[in-house]
Every structure is written in C-alpha cells, then in structure tokens.
Amino acid sequence: MKWICEVREMYPFGKGFNRFIPLLLLLIPMALYIVFYFGPSILTVIYSFTDVKNLPGSTYQFVGLDNYRELFFSGNSGERWRSIVNTLIFMFVVTIVQNGVALFIAVIINQRLKGDYFYRAVFFLPVVLGVAVVALIWGMMFDPLNGPVNRLYDALFGYQDMFFGSFTHAFGYIIFVQIWMYMGYSMLIFLAGLQSVPKDLYEAGHIDGTNKWQSFRHITFPLIAPSFTVNMLLSIIGAMSTFDIILATTDGRFNTRTMAYDVYKETFRGSLEMGLPSALSVIQFLIILLFVVVAVRQTRKREVEY
C-alpha cells in the first residue's frame, strides 16, 4: 500500500486528466479577475495614451504622451503638483499619526482593563459609520457660526476658525477627520497582533528584569511587526486613494484636492474625455506603488520569527 502514498505525493491531484482539475477550478476566479479587475487596469494604462471618449461609437487614436504633457505642462499644472504634494502630506500624516495613536490605544486596551470590549467597540464605531455620516457629524461640529468646536475655541483661546471653509486649515481638519474615522480599524489589527504574543515571553522578560518600556520595545514591538506592516500598507494605500471624505466635506475647495480626488473629478465631472483621468490614475498608481514597495521593504526587515 505504500506505493499509493508515494504516487499521491508525486501526483497530489491524481494522474491524467485529473491533474487539470485544479487549473479548471482556478479558471473561474481567474476569468472574473481578468474581466473585472486586471483587464480594466491594463486598459486604463492603454487609454492614458489615447484620446478615448466616453461616447459609444466614437473612435480613438493614440496621442503618445499628450495626456501626460497636459497634466504637467499646461495652464493648471501648478494645481496638479499641489494635489500631489497634498496627497503626500495626507499620506505621511495619516499613516504616522493613525498608526501611532492606534498602537497606543491598542496597547492600553490590551492591558485587560475593565470594559475593554466597550472601549474596543467605541473606538471602532466610526469605521462602521461610513463617510457620509462622518462628514455630516464633523460638518456640524465644525460649523463656523454656531458649532460646538468654535465655541470651545472661543472660550479657550478667544479665537474662531472657518474650518472646512478656510484656505489654510481645511486640509488639516480633513486629515483629522480621516484619522478619527479609520483609527479604530488599525487599532483592531494591532489588538489581534497583541493578543497573539505568547505570555511566557513577558514572564521570561520579567525574570530577566525588564521594565514596561523595555518589554514593549524588545518583546511586543518585534512580535507585532506583521500587524505593523499590514497597517502601514493599508493606511498608505487608503490615504493615497482617499477622495470620499474630501468630496463630502469641502468638495476639493480651499486647497484640499488630492490626486484621488482629481481622478474622480476628471472622470465624472470633467469632459467626456477619458485619456486625461486615465493618465492621472497611472501616475497615482506609480506613486502608490513606489511608497508601498519602500514601506514593505522597510517593515519586513523588522519582522521576527517565533
């Protein structure tokens, strides 16, 4: 009977036609993926070199780099560059602050303090609310005329702000709302990571005389590095492709445009021409790719096996 097992190992799916079954099964998701995801992505790249229009029956021609030239060397290119700068600011601030705060809160909640489930739920709640509701809530909080935040500012500093109507501050407030909204998500991932850290490591550390910071720095942090990687990636990609909260709060006014917002705007509100938004998407993709690759390389170094 031993040979059967050997054959099984050599041919885990059997012999002859049977060998193709896994491939056939894979065909279904592959087909769906190609039709609905990979295909359109490749088409976007191709379209970015054409003057394709959102009109049935209209023909299109290859125009070389014209769309890219229009993006970076035309009348409003200054705004495009500012969108890119805004996107990078948005990404850095959101990634760093959101993960920092989330990690801090996750570590505190993980101390098994009373009512940790309640806190977990409270911090996660904004994620469930959805962008429209969040924008509405903060729109009311930040109402410059009668809003509670302005009253607080007035009482504390004798100062009033225009919030989402201010050229200098609106973007900062959007970043704040974005972090407020998604912090719970990062926190949950950190919590999952924290709970998988074996307790005996802390005990061993305790015997060796570590203090709280040392045990966090040398035991907790290296062991939750995988969650850190995941959170970094999620917040980088998330922040880079955010346009919904901008749309719902300032609608891109008052210097709050990002690349993702521009893509949305050019695609759905601009002209029927799809070449320019395609080119914009390609640039956005390249920038995201660059940062994701760098971030993955950096964080992977810190991960340890246990």
Partner: peptide, 13 residues
C-alpha cells in the same frame, strides 16, 4: 467520478 465531475464542470463553464 472525478473525471465525470470535471467534465461536467468544464461543460458548465
């Protein structure tokens, strides 16, 4: 049976 199911699947596809 495996062969048959594979055929059926391919056919369905």
């Amino acid at each position: 049976i495996k062969k048959l199911s594979a055929l059926l699947l391919a056919g369905a596809l």
